[in-house]
């Protein structure tokens, strides 16, 4: 099914998407909440979807040919979002499962409050760089930043502030910014790379990048320094 989004509201677009197993949205121009909460279908978006693309996504696969805006995959539970371009702020806010692949860069607060639960392991692969506050309050899951084709630092400030679970992988020779005290950093080892190789291969497959070249490069692993960063703060009154 093809949905011509020209002149349509998000409600009208979603109403049509709900009836199809596979659909292409043409001429998308800023309509929000596309595929919100959807599962069991494949959706292609040509154009620029608005904020909260695939919020609460529950198993659907969304491919966007263009840039996406803020809150892509907000509180996503399952499924896959592939962005052939960049995303705005708060990409993958509190996502609990599923995968987000961004060819280029993500804005501020990417992967903030990402979680993991039982078999659910959310994964976000950002091809370029992330803005400040990436992985803030991260409680689980994996954020991989590849640093492809960028001329800015791979992450901004305050990466992983309040982090208490999960991992962030950064592909770079030096991190270059100060990391907060909750985060400990170490070079990636063989097992780390084996763990994420499948996701990097996916990235290279979606965006026609060179896996061999990326795999040879140096990665850092960021992990929480303690599982309970705020533990000692209180005295019972």
């Amino acid at each position: 099914m093809t949905v011509d989004a020209r002149g349509m509201t998000f409600g009208e677009i979603n109403e049509r998407l709900r009836t199809a197993d596979e659909a292409t949205v043409e001429n998308c121009l800023g309509q929000r909440f596309i595929a919100c909460g959807m599962g069991g279908k494949k959706i292609t978006v040509n154009g620029t979807p608005g904020n909260a693309l695939g919020a609460y996504l529950d198993g659907a696969e969304i491919t966007v040919y263009g840039n996406a805006q803020d809150a892509v995959g907000d509180t996503m539970n399952d499924g896959r979002i592939i962005i052939h371009g960049s995303t705005g702020d708060a990409t993958g806010y509190a996502m609990r499962g599923g995968e987000i692949y961004v060819r280029d860069s993500a804005g501020y607060r990417a992967g903030i409050h990402m979680k993991a639960y039982k078999e659910k392991l959310p994964v976000m692969v950002i091809g370029g760089s992330c803005g400040s506050f990436a992985g803030e309050y991260q409680a689980g899951g994996i954020i991989i930043v590849l640093g492809r084709r960028i001329n800015v630092p791979i992450i901004g400030n305050f990466c992983g502030t309040g982090m208490h679970g999960g991992r962030i992988y950064l592909c770079c020779d030096e991190i270059g910014v100060h990391l907060p005290r909750q985060v400990k950093v170490r070079p990636a080892e063989k097992e780390d790379m084996e763990f994420i190789s499948g996701y990097i291969k996916n990235y290279c497959m979606f965006f026609s990048d060179d896996y061999g070249e990326i795999a040879r490069r140096h990665f850092f692993v960021l992990e929480p320094d303690s599982e309970n960063p705020y533990k000692q703060l209180y005295v019972l009154n």
């Binding site: 702020d89 903030i112 309050y137 409680a139 309040g162």
Partner: peptide
Amino acid sequence: MIPEGSDAISPAPHHD
């Protein structure tokens, strides 16, 4: 829907 033993932190603001 979080692992056992993990802190459950609700930040003061919604970051979006």
